[in-house]
Nucleic acid binder design. Structure first.
Lengths: 152, 152
DNA sequence: AAATATTAGTTACAAGTGTAACTATTAAAA
DNA sequence: TTTTAATAGTTACACTTGTAACTAATATTT
């Protein structure tokens, strides 16, 4: 049984999830950043991921953001510093525990979020073009499962 | 029709391919690097991708490596510099066009390749555990298609 | 054939990133 | 209750990475 598993798993570069996910993630990020830059919006893919998770969850501590995005606390500090300087987010020290800073979108942050969404959709639409939409759905479900495996 | 597409594509962070592929690629890379480091093999995930593409294709120019892996020529120079210093690969100037340098694995490079493969398989097996193997196959096929879309 | 453009690979430097050490605050242990 | 440990967030510095300019060789244009 173990032998069979190894057999199935025979390593092949072409189908290596590590490689293909790295390439896709890079392409999508660069593609989004290029689209935004051409409209004079200078926001990186990672900053965008923070903006969108904040839009979805409304209020998160820096540690929570890091956990959700797989980024460490130093990276989060830097991203929040930049986003706060641009007044897209604000830090609010928690009343119940002064170690925590709750981060939330400002009105300007919500505005930029809505401005960027169409470009994010565009990038994904390009990536998904001429691929069966059920296949894409199924693929994303499998990727979620893989991601769960990797986080536990 | 276009309206329907946009509707299907409604942006959701959770199912954002950009985010999930970034997280998976990072996890897999770090997981492999940690496994290797604990056995005193100090090779990064990117260096590994170069070793394995060279094992598969036997001989490639630096530009070809970059194209296959989605890395630019400067990154490739650096990786090949390191791998050459470790005597895992060698550069051979092309006889037909002196601008090109053909890169290939040395016997030591082939040896380290075979040494690393089991760890690469292990990392993927962890990622795929308890997921239906047909789903994984289908997922990888879809990712290949997405990757093709992004490269054209 | 000479001049120009293009390409593969390299180098240099600025900008970005990861690691470790730090502060402030709260929780747990003695 | 005092001491110790743990946690959220920050800072500093070494290391890595991206951009642009460079060399050398070949291809193209004039």
């Amino acid at each position: 049984m173990q032998f069979r598993l190894i057999n199935i798993m025979k390593y092949s570069f072409d189908t290596s999830l590590g490689n293909i996910s790295r390439m896709i993630s890079k392409s999508l990020g660069k593609s989004l950043e290029a689209k935004l830059a051409s409209r004079d919006i200078f926001i990186t893919a990672e900053q965008w991921s923070v903006l969108s998770i904040l839009f979805q969850k409304k209020k998160l501590t820096q540690i929570e953001i890091g956990t959700l995005l797989g980024l460490d606390k130093v990276q989060i500090v830097r991203i929040i510093d930049i986003l706060e300087k641009e007044k897209f987010v604000q830090r609010v020290i928690s009343l119940t525990d002064k170690r925590f800073k709750n981060v939330n979108l400002t009105p300007k942050g919500i505005e930029i979020y809505h401005k960027i969404v169409p470009y994010a959709i565009e990038v994904h639409a390009d990536a998904f073009s001429s691929i069966n939409k059920d296949d894409i759905k199924q693929c994303l479900i499998t990727l979620e499962k893989i991601n769960d495996n990797l986080n536990h």
